[in-house]
Design a protein around this nucleic acid. Sequence first.
DNA 1: GACGATTGTCGTACAGTGTGCGAGTGACCT
DNA 2: AGGTCACTCGCACACTGTACGACAATCGTC
Lengths: 249, 249
Amino acid sequence: MPEQRFTSVWTRESKPRRAQQGLSREQIVRATIELLDAEGMEALSMRKLGAKLGAGATSLYWHVANKNELLELAMDEVFGAVRIPDSENWREVVSNVAWGLRVAIMAHPWFTFVLGSLPALGPNALNCSAVLCAALSRAGFQGHDVDYAGAAVLSYTIGATAPEAAYTSALKSRGITMEQANRDLAPAVEQAVRAHPEIHARFQQAVDSTIDPIAHRQLSFDFGLVAMLDGLAARLPRSADMPANHLTN
Amino acid sequence: MPEQRFTSVWTRESKPRRAQQGLSREQIVRATIELLDAEGMEALSMRKLGAKLGAGATSLYWHVANKNELLELAMDEVFGAVRIPDSENWREVVSNVAWGLRVAIMAHPWFTFVLGSLPALGPNALNCSAVLCAALSRAGFQGHDVDYAGAAVLSYTIGATAPEAAYTSALKSRGITMEQANRDLAPAVEQAVRAHPEIHARFQQAVDSTIDPIAHRQLSFDFGLVAMLDGLAARLPRSADMPANHLTN
DNA sequence: GACGATTGTCGTACAGTGTGCGAGTGACCT
DNA sequence: AGGTCACTCGCACACTGTACGACAATCGTC
């Protein structure tokens, strides 16, 4: 049996391109993202995408090996949308990248779906990593710890945002408002809270509607991010720079 | 237009069940997990699942509303596989739950895929949350901070493990060994590292094969987890309990 | 026991999917 | 002028989730 090779958009050299004419890979990826944003993950089909571009479905296969490659490209584009801050303060850099990534993910909820199925090896993903690592390196981390710390921040950011994006996206794709969902969830939540009194706030938005759920989640995200940064800072040789002075009480 | 309602396996009361006969929901979920484990996400089809159970494909629809519900159930089963520790020490509890969840996810790589598309509202997911929150509450967190801290740990754990599981799963489903993948990735990695010298360790497994990649990732996971726990501990009123004394240097 | 209601199974069918293949088209280079 | 590429696309195949309605089996009630 001939052993398979590992392939990804990022592991093959690109084909030579003729002068601009008709479809281009960039154009296709852009259309893919538009379609995904507008109609969600399961509405994306090659035929629909082709139609949107005024082309046949199979024409796309000249520019892209398969649908998965297309998704890899789209995912990396989201990583590319993260604005990279320019600052000397490592906490500021790391924090801004994390927030930027969060915003990008929330704007493209299908992102977490793709991330769950395909590895993220694109240049923009690597760049996000690299920016974090550079800042952490300047902060004083050394050796493997640089990568570990960078991965930790990235992991937290993605892990915190993914379920949130999945949820809002699930609502949107079924055409349900958040109020309606909260109303539908209310009995189940009530029962869950009765069984586990410890988690009263996690779903409190569903019962207590005076709290803005979006603000609530931002607070939650910030709490974890600050904790992570504090934990990292404590690892630095002399951590004389800046206490944890953030918007959480 | 009649507004849609939000539905999930967990938001509808279960049907009355007659005495055990033929298919059962538990049996179906078990078979689903077996099939997913063995052949991966995209190999799961209702027809194949029916065949595996010696039943027609559409018979399944009596016990389950649709494929998504089935995935929700399977996902919650994974949450249920996390062994809940019994300890007074909050760090031990939290740390063990995090590691347990990590192990469960790695054993069922399709998990992160489902998590990316469907919200996790099942009892076992809630229970994981609740156990964490209970420990954190005993540790001294109060009010919303309890939930925030619990969510932070869960988020980090999932975010750190998801891409890893996705990657190994992608390899497995294409029948590629890790050595082969590393070989295929090597040129791309080399180029990436040249462009971003900051991230030399993230892919070092691909070049320097003397490091066991699995151990490497465990170290990385532990690093972030300890940082998160340290950051949380620092938030406690009097953090006189136990320094960060773990396997990282 | 009889009989209607409920629970459960399944064959068929429909609309739609990703993508392999091979024929076609036009632009470029020699 | 002729050949070689970069592309586009129609067709076809195997396969998907699931709505529907016809069946069988078992139950509660008389």
